Amino acid sequence: MQKIWEQFKEVAMAIFPMAAVIIVLQYTVIGLPPELFFRFVAGVVMVGFGLFLFLVGVHIGLLPVGEMIGSSLPKTGKWSLVIGIGFVLGVVVTIAEPDVRVLASQIDQVSGGEISNNLLVYSVALGVGFFVAVAMARTIFNIPLKYILIVSYGLVILLMTQVPPNFVPISFDAGGVTTGPMTVPFILALGVGVASVLRGKSSTSDSFGLVALASIGPIFAVMLLGVIYG
Rank of each mutant, 00 (worst) to 15 (best):
Q2W: 10
K3D: 10
F8Q: 03
K9P: 01
M13A: 14
M13D: 04
A14L: 14
P17I: 08
A19S: 15
I22H: 04
I22W: 07
L25F: 14
Q26T: 09
T28D: 11
P34F: 13
E35L: 14
L36M: 13
R39F: 04
F40V: 13
V41A: 14
A42I: 13
G43H: 06
G43L: 02
G50R: 02
G50F: 08
L53M: 12
V56R: 09
G57K: 12
H59C: 00
G61Y: 13
L62R: 01
L63C: 09
V65W: 06
G70S: 09
G70F: 01
S71L: 06
S71K: 12
S71A: 10
S72T: 07
S72G: 00
K78F: 08
K78I: 06
W79C: 00
W79K: 02
L81Q: 07
I85P: 10
G86V: 00
L89T: 08
V92D: 01
A96P: 08
E97G: 11
E97A: 15
E97I: 00
R101P: 01
Q109D: 10
Q109P: 00
S111E: 07
G113P: 03
N117A: 05
V121Q: 05
S123C: 14
V128A: 12
F130L: 15
F131W: 11
V132A: 11
A137I: 03
I140M: 12
F141W: 15
Y147K: 10
I148H: 04
L149V: 11
V151I: 15
L155D: 02
V156H: 05
I157Q: 09
L159G: 02
V163N: 05
P165F: 08
N166E: 12
I170Q: 02
D173C: 09
D173A: 14
G180Y: 04
P181A: 15
P181E: 02
P181D: 07
T183A: 09
G191A: 11
V194C: 07
V194Y: 04
V194E: 05
L198S: 00
S202Y: 07
S202M: 01
S203C: 02
S203Q: 06
D206A: 13
S207P: 01
S207W: 00
F208N: 06
F208Y: 15
F208K: 08
G209E: 03
G209W: 02
L210D: 04
V211K: 08
V211P: 00
I219R: 04
F220Q: 05
M223H: 10
L224S: 13
L225P: 02
G226S: 10
I228W: 15
Y229V: 08
